[in-house]
Nucleic acid binder design. Sequence first.
DNA 1: ATCGCTGCAAAACATTTGCAGTTTG
DNA 2: CAAACTGCAAATGTTTTGCAGCGAT
Lengths: 118, 118
Amino acid sequence: MAMPGHPSPEEVFERVRKKIPAISLATVYKTIHTFLDSGTFGEVSIHHGSLRVDRNNRPHHHLVCTRCKSIIDIDDADLEPVRLRKSLPGGFRVQRYAVEILGLCAKCIARSQTHPEM
Amino acid sequence: MAMPGHPSPEEVFERVRKKIPAISLATVYKTIHTFLDSGTFGEVSIHHGSLRVDRNNRPHHHLVCTRCKSIIDIDDADLEPVRLRKSLPGGFRVQRYAVEILGLCAKCIARSQTHPEM
DNA sequence: ATCGCTGCAAAACATTTGCAGTTTG
DNA sequence: CAAACTGCAAATGTTTTGCAGCGAT
């Protein structure tokens, strides 16, 4: 929890090692998952693990199901433009932005009613 | 290009295989990278490949450098609330949203001036 | 005695690379 | 012929798993 930024498991491992030299990478992974499951912290992207191609070359955003990870495109025009209230940290040159709307898709809502345990 | 959705390399491989049974997964990866590099299409998340922990449990968004992949948090309060112009596809239950602002960080801008080839 | 946590090693995935042969222009 | 593309197999990188031991309840 003391680590700044958005560390990878490997980085957490290197850091924790300084305090607990005998710790293993597997334990770091297991512990990270315990915290993720409990919601103590999150992960930067729900889609790490495998590359996913996005053929839609119009400006658009994503509806992402937090349960089944499915993705639905929504057109940029369906969203009011995103506006900043403050200027960004010095020297960052914006190219574009993408909004990720997280929630449950219809299928997963239906499934959670018939199989609440899943 | 004919595939709907946001396929993984494995899914592209299975599909292309029907037309070209002898194709290998390595060729699919190489071809996907050719298209990604040329900008023909994009990828859903720039952060696939490795898990990244996000300890910031306040609502916030990310500034992401497309070159070095570094991440800077920006507070939700620094953004006007995101608004929809249309209702979402049937039955999607929104939990939260996250804005990803993509661009170049100050370091990478500086570096591209001294080492334009990198 | 049981439960949960650990390290280790191996397994399971995901992706990249070197290389030699083939195709294309 | 040169350049680009291919399959294969091996190498890399990331994450998970089985298992036996250990400590706390």
